[in-house]
Design a protein around this nucleic acid. Structure first.
Lengths: 199, 199
DNA sequence: GTCTATATACCGATAGAC
DNA sequence: GTCTATCGGTATATAGAC
C-alpha cells in the first residue's frame, strides 16, 4: 500500500498536526517554563480542546518525548551548521569550537536545555527512539576526539563536567548575560594544558 | 517578659513542631523528590491534618523556605566540622579541601542540592532571611581566597562553574557512584595550574 | 478527528467548630 | 492548636456523540 496517495496525504496531515502541537508546547515552555506545558494550554494554542490531543499523542509525556528527540536532533544540526571552515584544527581549536557552539545552543533556550540535560519533569523518561539522537551526538563527539589521542573516559568526563558547569552557571546566575560565556576559551586552554595525552 | 517560663515552654513546643514538620518534609523530599512534598503528605507524617500545618507555616513555600535556610546553615556547619587540621595550606591544598568537602555535602543529598542550587520548585523564592546563610557561605569563601591573591571575579567564576559541573555530572550521570568524585583533585590541579595570580 | 461531558485524582488554602 | 468540611482550582485521561 506504499505510495497510495490518499494514505500519503493523511499521513502528512497527521504529521503536520503533531508538529503543530509540539511547536505550541515549545512556545509555552519558552514563555512560562516546562511545567506550564499542560494539555489545556497546548490545545488552546492549536485551536483544540485538550482531549483532542490524545488523537495525536498518547500522553502528555509523549509530547515531551517528541520535544526531547527534536531538541537533540536540532543540537546535532546546529553543530553541523556551524562546522569550522577547515578540518585541520588542533585539539585546542576543535574544543574551543565545540565548547562555544554547544554552549550557545544550550544557552539560547533555557527550557530546551532543561529538557535535554536536567530532570525537571518528574515521571518523564525519554524513550529509546528519542534518546538515540543524544547518544549519537555523544558518540560522534568521542569519534572526533579519537584522532587527537583523547579517548580516556576520565579526560572526557572532566571536559563534560567543565562544559556543563559553565552552561549551568551562565543560565542560573546570569541568564541573558555573558559572565561565563566569556570564560569559555580560557576554560578550554586550562583543560587542554592540563591534559597528559598518551603518545 | 523574657524569661517567663510559660512563654518559654510555649515557644519551645512551637519550635519543636516546626522542626518536626521540616524534618518530615525532608524525609519526603529524599524519598520521592521535592515535588512530592505536599501538605497532605507532610501532615500525615507528623500525625496531623493538612490544614493544621498552617498553624506553624503560613504556606507550603514557607516550609521550603525553612528547608532552604537550614540546608545552607548545615552546609556552613559541614564545612566548619571538616576544617583542615592545619591552617597553613597552600592555595592548591585549600581548594582541594574546599572542593571535596562541598562536593560531598552536595552529593550526599540530591533533594537538598536541588533545593539549594537549582530552581526546581516553581514559584519558590527564598526569603532574605533564608538566603542569608548562602550569601554568608559565599562571602566567607571569598575571604578565604583573598590571602592567596585570588580575588578576581573571573577566577572565582571559573572555579564555581567547575565545581558545580562536577557535582551536577556526578548526580545526573552516576548517582551513588564516584565517576566524577575521583576527578576532584585533578580538576583542582588543572584549575590552579591555569591561574595567573597577580604578584 | 474533534467535540462535550465526565471520571478520577490531586493540589493549596480557608472557615469555623471544638 | 487541631479538627472537619469544603472551596476553588489544577491536572491527565476516557467515553461516547457527531
Amino acid at each position: 500500500m506504499l505510495g497510495n496517495p490518499t494514505r500519503d496525504r493523511l499521513a502528512e496531515r497527521r504529521e503536520a498536526s503533531r508538529r503543530e502541537i509540539v511547536n505550541a508546547a515549545w512556545s509555552i515552555a519558552r514563555e512560562d517554563g516546562l511545567a506550564a506545558v499542560t494539555l489545556r494550554e497546548v490545545a488552546a494554542r492549536v485551536g483544540m480542546r485538550a482531549p483532542s490531543l490524545y488523537t495525536h499523542f498518547e500522553s502528555r509525556n509523549a509530547i515531551f518525548d517528541a520535544m526531547f528527540g527534536q531538541a537533540w536532533r536540532d543540537c546535532v544540526e546546529h553543530m553541523n551548521a556551524n562546522l569550522p571552515s577547515t578540518d585541520d584544527l588542533s585539539l585546542r581549536e576543535f574544543l574551543k569550537w565545540n565548547t562555544r557552539t554547544f554552549f550557545e545552543f544550550c544557552v539560547s533556550d533555557i527550557a530546551r536545555f532543561q529538557l535535554m540535560n536536567q530532570r525537571t519533569i518528574q515521571g518523564f523518561e525519554p524513550s529509546p527512539e528519542s534518546y538515540a539522537p543524544s547518544v549519537q551526538a555523544l558518540e560522534r563527539f568521542r569519534e572526533e576526539l579519537e584522532p587527537y589521542g583523547l579517548s580516556r573516559q576520565e579526560d572526557i568526563d572532566l571536559y563534560t563536567a567543565l562544559l556543563g558547569g559553565l552552561i549551568d552557571a551562565q543560565l542560573a546566575n546570569d541568564p541573558g548575560g555573558n559572565r561565563w560565556e566569556k570564560l569559555l576559551d580560557r576554560a578550554v586552554d586550562m583543560y587542554v594544558d592540563g591534559l597528559d595525552l598518551p603518545s
